[in-house]
Amino acid sequence: MTSERQLVVLAVNGTEHELLLEPRQILSDVLRHELGLTGTHVGCEHGVCGACTVLVDGEPVRSCLVFAVQAEDAEVRTVESLGEGAELTDLQQAFRAHHGLQCGFCTAGFLMLAEGFLLQEPDAGRDEVREAVSANLCRCTGYQNIVDAVADTAARRRGSPGSSTQEAAP
């Protein structure tokens, strides 16, 4: 028994979309397969890996743990909203400069996590960044370069570039 579809209005990346959806369709699926915004990836569908992280009303949220019908009054932002045209944002550039991605599958989730986190915590240092970054899984990088990229972006936005990996000392 499929449930009845209902009309849902979703505001994604500044555009309103009218969609006829089953209530059980999760937001990540709707973004990817109904709206064609395939930059958001799906890695676990139970809210642990964070590959599907998007901004909902400016906050980082697992889009696999939200039914699209629940997002009706919200403003959703996906990785496709970062940058203008081919121009990469400072955060994206920092990921590139620090080699913060290898296969790139988890990357959109980390970018949106970092974007949401830095909006809320612009003064975050490397330790806070590491804790925030621990929300998502990456299987390729070992995280160090992701932490560096986000911490570097935070520092640059504060006007003090150059924060990178610290050598441990006994």
Partner: peptide, 20 residues
């Protein structure tokens, strides 16, 4: 700079589940 990065950073990669 990695040549694959711009598309992967901007959500323009094409993974198998992106194929429709």
């Amino acid at each position: 700079p990695r040549r694959e990065d711009p598309r992967l950073l901007s959500g323009r990669g094409r993974f198998v589940d992106d194929v429709h």
